[in-house]
Amino acid sequence: MIKVGIIGGSGYTGGELIRILLNHSQAEIDFVYSTTRAGKKITSAHADLLGVTELAFTGDVNLNVDLVFLCLGHGNSTKFLNANPFSENTKIIDLSNDFRLNDDAIFQGKKFVYGLPELLKADIKTANYIANPGCFATAIQLALLPLAKDNKLQNEVHINAVTGSTGAGVSPSATSHFSWRNNNASWYKPFTHQHLGEIGESLNSLQENVGPLFFLPNRGNFTRGIFATLYTKYDGSLESAQVLFKDFYKNALFTQISDEPIDLKQVVNTNQAHIHLHKHGNTLLITSAIDNLLKGASGQAVQNMNLMFSFNENEGLLLKAGVF
């Protein structure tokens, strides 16, 4: 049994971590840190946990826990670690983008490993510090990694992906509050989204000179999930592409290749990633779906924790989709 701390526990990703860890047989929550809710019960932020836990938020940090999750806004993890020097025995999983890129991976002498198990499982198992991937980055990389490994990303890749409102965080904004988001749709950060950097580094680790990625993110009028469609030139048959993807993910517990078209509800509330392939002429269409808060954030973080401590990889993550 390991003791874990959560920094930033009142937000969406912190809440999902609490829910998972309360049902994890090998991990015990030591503290949940929050600057805005210290002293208040966890249920003041996560009402669905009423009757499940009596834990309260704290303003104190135990610097000697076995593992700490950082659920802070981008740019704040570095500030927090500078102010709170954890023990050398404390492993860290950061859910922000502070350490994802190669140029940012070493901080205070700590080497952060990029935490995408389908790509770097062996490295994650021996790592002490993990940079958890972004949600869009996870959905898109899983759709493209098998092609990169086979040197098939020579041409342009066009990506259209829609995300739920929880991807914008728990604090209301002009584009996340109900009155604007409901019955509405819009794009943002066209072709410049910050996740393109980590996507590019992963693909380039498998294939040199990857073709350009044209990524158009969209806001959906639903709360959670990412549904991505990607297409690129592919000269092989659909069957050869299916063999390529199924072979690449044959040992991946949470990434499934579906022979039938997929939809978002299949993966919402789970740590699963579902992928479907379709061929039209010489164009390969890849559809990828994940839950942005689970496989795109907290679920993948726990998956990484399981690998780091040699637990069963799916411990705490056998979750049911809300398909109806």
Rank of each mutant, 00 (worst) to 15 (best):
T36C: 09
L81A: 11
L55K: 14
G59T: 02
N64F: 14
I275P: 11
G281P: 09
N184W: 11
N97M: 09
Y231K: 08
K149H: 12
F245T: 05
Q256V: 15
L196F: 04
N183L: 15
K265T: 13
S298L: 12
N312R: 08
T223A: 12
V162W: 00
Q207D: 06
Q266G: 15
T270F: 05
A105D: 03
S165R: 09
L17P: 07
K246F: 05
V52S: 09
K233F: 05
N89Y: 06
K110D: 05
N314I: 10
N155T: 13
N132G: 10
V4G: 06
T53S: 15
N314K: 12
D66K: 02
V65N: 05
C71D: 00
L293N: 11
Y249L: 15
G220I: 00
L203Q: 10
L95Y: 04
G15N: 03
A38P: 07
N102W: 02
L307P: 04
F324P: 02
K111Y: 09
E201D: 08
F248D: 02
F222A: 06
S186M: 14
L142N: 13
F248C: 13
Q194S: 15
A252Q: 10
I275L: 15
K149Q: 12
D98L: 01
T126A: 15
P190L: 00
R219N: 09
S87K: 07
K121Q: 10
V157D: 01
K3S: 09
K91W: 03
E54R: 10
A137R: 01
S77Y: 01
G299E: 09
L101K: 02
N102G: 14
A273L: 10
F99K: 04
D98V: 01
N155F: 04
D150P: 04
N64H: 13
N312V: 04
F215Y: 14
I130F: 00
A127E: 03
A143F: 02
T138M: 07
V302G: 05
G9C: 02
N23P: 06
F214W: 02
I93N: 06
H24L: 00
K250I: 15
P85G: 01
F31T: 01
A321F: 13
G225P: 06
L216S: 09
G169C: 04
V65Y: 01
L145E: 10
L22S: 07
D123W: 01
K279A: 07
K121W: 05
N314A: 15
G51M: 03
A137D: 09
N23V: 05
Q242P: 05
Y188N: 08
L319W: 12
I257S: 08
S176V: 00
V162C: 14
W187Q: 10
N271E: 06
N151K: 14
N89E: 10
I130N: 02
L116Y: 03
S176M: 03
T163S: 14
L238I: 12
F80P: 06
L17H: 05
T43P: 08
Y12V: 13
A45D: 03
A228L: 06
I290W: 02
I275E: 13
L17V: 01
L67P: 08
V323L: 13
A168S: 13
G220P: 07
R219A: 14
N304W: 05
Y234C: 07
N204M: 08
L285W: 05
A241N: 06
